[in-house]
């Protein structure tokens, strides 16, 4: 019993409680919530975000942030549309998009590691910059030029009822867990997040780790952009606009500290489920997207407010106890 209680006191336990209540409320509200179709559908609708959330875990653990991910999604999707529109073969275009992602991410990493600029500023600039490039490519058009096999890949299930995008997500999830928990690279990520200088003075190539992370972030965001384009079958300049809010919320709500060095992927999985189920539940109850965004914003604040309040109350009670003695 006490083990369960302790578990509940932890952040993961708390998230599990919330998740269970969200599931309960949703399934009471709507019969279709628990159906396999709806489950797959709700994952599919947000699969781009949760894929990027996986790499964001690494970046925030490393005490950095990447605000440019959503713009990179937009850029890669638009680049895909533009390339195909101007006659590039599909496969080559896909490769080029991933390359754009790698280059964009490395560009971020370059300023962060070579000039030692804060990632907040660099990626904020590129949030504007990548989006700007996306708009340069497609201006205010909507490009719908993809071959049917590509659209089918984005929209039809390939393994039982499961579409490719979700399989990719699951594959990346397993990879992320393994890297973070069991590899030397994962441990470097934690150490750098706790104290970058300790890592530096231990002869760890801090810049290389950061460079890898930001480049990976670019590639994965570009991949997410491609999947997004396949799912929608068309691209527009504002694709993925302000997705970074959802993505960062998922990571922070999952208990990853914004100051780096602590948190795990388990918590993030729980928080992904919470965010997706909440959005799905709201959609099923006909609540509009704008309000959903507001709820996510509130959730982001709560995810840090609650542990803070908990600590304040704890401290306050301790002080009271001391005074009483």
């Amino acid at each position: 019993m006490s083990i369960i209680l302790n578990k509940l006191k932890s952040w993961e336990g708390f998230l599990s409680l919330i998740l269970i209540s969200v599931i309960l409320v949703n399934s009471l509200n709507s019969e279709s919530f628990l159906s396999i179709d709806n489950q797959i559908n709700l994952f599919e609708l947000s699969v781009e975000k949760i894929i990027v959330a996986l790499i964001m875990v690494f970046i925030i653990l490393n005490a950095e942030i990447d605000l440019s991910v959503a713009s990179m999604m937009g850029l890669s999707a638009c680049a895909l549309g533009w390339l195909v529109d101007s006659g590039t073969p599909m496969i080559l275009a896909l490769g080029l998009c991933l390359l754009i992602g790698a280059m964009g991410g490395a560009f971020n990493g370059y300023w962060i590691t070579v000039f030692k600029l804060p990632s907040l500023v660099v990626t904020l600039a590129m949030l504007i910059g990548f989006r700007g490039l996306a708009r340069v490519l497609v201006e205010d058009r909507s490009i719908r030029v993809f071959p049917s096999w590509f659209e089918a890949l984005g929209q039809q299930p390939i393994l039982g009822p499961i579409p490719l995008s979700i399989i990719i997500f699951l594959g990346l999830l397993i990879l992320a867990v393994i890297i973070l928990k069991f590899t030397g690279f994962g441990r470097y990520v934690y150490f750098i997040g706790i104290n970058q200088n300790v890592a530096l003075y231990s002869g760890i190539n801090v810049s290389r780790v950061k460079m890898i992370l930001f480049t990976a972030s670019g590639i994965i965001s570009a991949l997410a952009g491609i999947l997004f384009a396949a799912r929608l079958g068309a691209v527009r300049g504002d694709m993925g606009l302000s997705f970074e809010l959802d993505i960062i919320t998922m990571v922070l709500l999952g208990g990853v500290s914004i100051f780096g060095g602590s948190g795990s992927i388990n918590g993030v999985i729980l928080s992904i489920l919470i965010v997706l189920y909440l959005r799905n539940g709201m959609s099923l109850s006909n609540i509009t997207g704008h309000i959903q965004t507001g709820v996510i914003g509130g959730l982001l604040i709560l995810s840090v407010l609650i542990p803070n309040l908990q600590k304040m109350i704890h401290d306050f009670l301790n002080q009271r106890r001391k005074q009483l003695q």
Binding site: F182, T183, G184, A199, I204, G261
Partner: peptide, 25 residues
């Protein structure tokens, strides 16, 4: 790195010795 364990601090500078070929510790 104060919040990390004694073990992982001890092996931090020599972690390469403890990795298999897939990079697993």
């Amino acid at each position: 790195a104060m919040p990390m364990s004694v073990t992982s601090n001890i092996t931090l500078a020599s972690l390469n010795q403890y990795l298999n070929r897939y990079g697993i510790i």
